[in-house]
Nucleic acid binder design. Structure first.
Lengths: 129, 129
DNA sequence: TTTTTACTTGACCTTAACGTAAACGTAAAC
DNA sequence: GTTTACGTTTACGTTAAGGTCAAGTAAAAA
């Protein structure tokens, strides 16, 4: 029984982000809460989009890149051209992420090499304190 | 026979970055070219550091994080405390990178799911155009 | 009925990582 | 001997992603 509606403080505490950030994402068009009087009410769709936003940020996407992807999700994909464009956009993001993964692996190898060199030192230099 | 010295335009064209960026990294203490008169001369060590800087940027490190790691490399590791600190710092970076990798994998799965949903649509909706 | 409490809208502030333009030095090329 | 090419410093500008007030509304609690 998932919630259908959320107010700003519920979301900001759930996701551990500030209300300011949520309003900022709204300004940028990433979410579109409706209003109850002056107050924002976030839907399940907004909730799902916020999950995407935060995951996107964790992998290094900018808000405008995230916006592009979100637009892919929620758009009409009736036309072939549209669908092909969506698939292409996904493939591009995926290969960018694969490249980042390779860079991460390279960096991890470098860091391990650094560790090894320091640990080798341990063998050659008498331990001091 | 690798080069021993570089000037700013050689490096900026080799790495495809601007001279401004190289001067900026110097301001931040990431590289320390010596001078020939007023002109900068970059050593092989600077060259190696730039490789690290750019790789670090590709995996989402900030310049100050990169600076930390570079300092680990080129510092005196004679003392046990120092070496343990270096190893700990490496391990922390490595686990952060592993987490990022997991987030990337999650994101790739999401993007593939999006692709699938669009491709399923292809089966259900007659192709137009 | 007055206080809280939660929420709102501006509006300006901040940090990172350079970009960009001005003004100047110097050495090679013409 | 003066352009041209390449380099320098100084300094202000820019974008992204919010942070941080200030001032006001509105409902709920005391």
């Amino acid at each position: 029984m998932a919630k259908e509606e959320y107010n700003i403080s519920e979301l900001s505490s759930e996701f551990n982000i500030t209300p300011r950030a949520l309003r900022f994402y709204e300004d940028k068009g990433l979410i579109k809460p409706i209003r109850n009087g002056q107050n924002r009410i976030y839907s399940r769709k907004d909730h799902a989009r916020i999950i995407w936003i935060l995951r996107g940020k964790r992998v290094g996407f900018s808000l405008s890149e995230i916006s592009e992807v979100l637009n892919l999700y929620y758009q009409d994909n009736g036309l072939k051209k549209q669908r092909l464009a969506t698939i292409k956009a996904c493939d591009e993001k995926i290969s960018a992420l694969e490249i980042t993964k390779e860079n991460i692996n390279e960096t991890i190898r470098e860091l391990n090499a650094l560790k090894d060199s320091v640990e080798d030192l341990k063998k050659n230099i008498p331990l001091k304190e």
